[in-house]
Amino acid sequence: MGAWGDGNLESDGALDALADICDELFGRVMELLQHPRAHEYDDEEIDELFVRIEMIFALSEKGMVKSAPAPEELEVLFDPYLQRWAEYQRESGDEFPHGREKVIRASFQRLMEIARAYSAWRL
């Protein structure tokens, strides 16, 4: 353990803290993908899900993702989530939000890319 530079993130402890934060973010995303109401547009879990995903994106853009789940653990959650979401949208009686579906799919794809890049760092 030690510090090797003057920056805020240039120590073993800082990298350990980032890994813990990433584990918590990804863990909660995985929980929310399975939550019974996280696909409902009027439920707070859907907002939390996508805010946490955006937080992971922001960390990734700054090179601050230090751990991620195995991609296959994450990927198996996407289709069931999207099926529940699509069914909920159809049952709402509103016009199906194809634009929103596109954004969700793109978000899941980007999350997978991050998981593929950083899951190998987990020990």
Rank of each mutant, 00 (worst) to 15 (best):
R100T: 14
E113Q: 10
G5Y: 09
R110G: 02
E48V: 12
A17L: 14
R28Y: 07
E61M: 09
L15K: 13
L9D: 08
E40T: 08
F78M: 08
S67T: 03
A115I: 02
S92Y: 11
C22T: 05
Y41R: 06
V51G: 09
L25F: 02
Y81W: 07
A19R: 10
L111N: 06
L111W: 01
R37E: 08
R28N: 10
L59V: 00
D42P: 01
A106V: 03
F57W: 01
F108A: 05
I104F: 13
M112C: 11
M30G: 01
A106N: 12
R90S: 13
G93V: 06
M30R: 12
A106F: 08
M30K: 15
C22V: 07
G93P: 02
H98W: 15
Y41F: 15
E61V: 04
L77V: 04
G5E: 04
F26K: 01
I53N: 00
E95Y: 11
S60H: 12
L77H: 10
E101N: 01
A17C: 13
H98F: 15
M55Q: 14
F50I: 09
D43W: 14
I46N: 03
V51F: 13
I114E: 05
A86R: 03
I46Y: 02
E91Q: 08
E54D: 15
L32D: 02
A19H: 15
V76C: 08
E113H: 05
L59E: 13
I114Y: 06
R110F: 10
A58D: 15
E72H: 02
M64N: 10
D43Q: 08
P80E: 04
L77C: 05
H35S: 05
L18A: 05
I53R: 01
L25H: 03
F57R: 13
V103H: 08
F78H: 03
L74E: 01
C22H: 07
E10K: 07
G93L: 03
A86T: 03
N8C: 12
R28D: 15
Q89W: 04
E87K: 06
A17Y: 14
P71T: 00
F50K: 03
D12E: 13
D43F: 06
R84I: 01
S92V: 07
R28E: 14
M112K: 02
D43C: 10
D42W: 05
E31P: 05
V65S: 04
L111G: 08
I56N: 00
E101Q: 14
G99W: 05
Q109K: 09
L82F: 09
I53S: 01
H39E: 05
M64T: 14
Q34H: 12
G27F: 02
L25G: 06
D42H: 10
M112L: 07
G63N: 15
L32A: 02
I46A: 04
S60P: 08
W4K: 02
E113K: 10
H39Q: 01
V76Y: 00
A38P: 12
S92G: 11
F96L: 07
D42N: 15
L82K: 14
L74N: 07
V103A: 11
F78E: 02
Q34F: 12
E40K: 08
A17G: 03
R116N: 09
H39F: 01
P71F: 03
L49W: 03
P97K: 07
R110Y: 06
R37Q: 15
L77Q: 00
P69G: 05
H35N: 12
I46G: 03
F78Q: 09
A106E: 09
M30Q: 05
G7L: 12
H98G: 11
I56V: 02
